[in-house]
Design a protein around this nucleic acid. Structure first.
Lengths: 221, 221
DNA sequence: ACGGTTATCGAACGTTCGTTGAGCTGGCGT
DNA sequence: ACGCCAGCTCAACGAACGTTCGATAACCGT
């Protein structure tokens, strides 16, 4: 090996990035976990990605496992907050509520694509205790959607005979967006949201007020 | 509740079986890859699960990477065969063809749950060359579904203005089944297929011919 | 009974892994 | 001016990793 730095140059981050270690670690961990998966990502590469040394990871977290857990919790909290905000704005009309939920979900999957894929794929590598705790929080999401659907069915606005399958279908199709969406593609977030709202309404058996071909310029938003 | 250590899936071959090494390895690899992910699964554990020694793996495959690739190719070939069979039986009615595709997919996700989850989650750990080759084959699936939808739209049977989103939504919701389905649950395969056919028809904007309770499929299975 | 092919094993390799603990450093409160 | 402590680094550990290779055991056509 070549000799390392004789003077303690420490490159470019002597003044610029002091005190930002946590953020740097979290971002790097997010990207590398998402790219290579939990077991495929080494904490050495994560630290290198953050421009820091290996052991700084153990200053902020108790280990690799807890680092993943922290990332997942942050991501989930963001998502839940988004859902609740949209639902709060939606009032109590079932269609508006379902639209709000879909909007929050699609929006999150698109705008926080990396975190989304991380959450959807790496949960299973959490240790049993952390996993159980995490899943408990996450299960609020399908419950929320299920409530929205049941409410719509009870009011006769949605016609699906299978609310459980509808819930799973809607979540699955929205979640999948994170796997294929490309910001450089033809669809913007708003168009995507609109289309997925239509899909979700179809899934829950909502009869559209207007027949087939009609200009859709509903002035919400 | 919390029960770890599942590495006795396919053991039991302490003697009596010579010449079944390949199958044993493949089964064990399938289970352990699916459970722990590609990088989380060690070839030592895979060999142990097969009741064989470490190095047998290198007699049948060139390495860990190629082992995963072989598994994924097998699984994909099975799935594609299923799709083609169902579509061949379906004739040329768009509704029948969409139903056939959904049936083949749901059926596969349920009956080959382990392979399904393996395929859906571990593709990304294939090396670039193997991945490219694999993705090429796999992309036949969305293309097939897209054709079915376009055909239905062209004939006026499906009314969706977003065939691309419909294709993705249908695939996503069917694929997700592998993540939650439990054979011990209340739903059998046939009921599940029937419900997902209805969901898919709703997604492509097909108007059901008869209101509420219509005739039930007879003689399936 | 035998020679050759097929199937399997055991030991070892170099590397990389997650984790640890002791040591350096620069800015802030005093 | 100085000590302190949060923030960070360095070097090292044992364990586990994927892979290799020579030897061994079972099978089969002859």
């Amino acid at each position: 090996m070549a000799k390392r730095n004789t003077t303690k140059a420490t490159a470019d981050r002597s003044s610029a990035t002091r005190g930002n270690g946590l953020t740097a670690i979290m971002q790097s961990a997010r990207d590398i976990f998402a790219e290579r998966g939990y077991h495929g990502a080494s904490i050495r590469d994560i630290a290198k990605g953050a421009g820091l040394s290996l052991s700084v990871l153990y200053y902020y977290h108790s280990g690799k496992q807890e680092l993943l857990h922290a990332l997942l919790e942050d991501a989930l909290a963001d998502y839940l907050r988004g859902c609740e905000q949209e639902l709060a704005k939606a009032g109590d009309d079932p269609v508006a509520r379902l639209s709000a939920f879909v909007r929050a979900t699609v929006d999150y999957r698109v705008r926080r694509q990396v975190e989304s894929n991380l959450s959807l794929r790496e949960i299973r590598h959490l240790d049993p205790e952390l996993l159980e705790q995490f899943v408990e929080q996450r299960d609020a999401v399908p419950r929320l959607l299920r409530q929205v659907i049941d409410d719509g069915v009870a009011r006769g606005v949605f016609g699906t005979p299978y609310p459980d399958e509808a819930q799973r279908a809607i979540l699955a199709m929205c979640n999948a967006i994170a796997q294929w969406y490309q910001p450089s593609g033809p669809l913007g977030v708003d168009e995507l949201v609109e289309r997925y709202v239509q899909l979700a309404l179809a899934v829950v058996g909502h009869q559209p007020a207007a027949p087939a071909t009609r200009a859709r310029r509903s002035g919400s938003r």
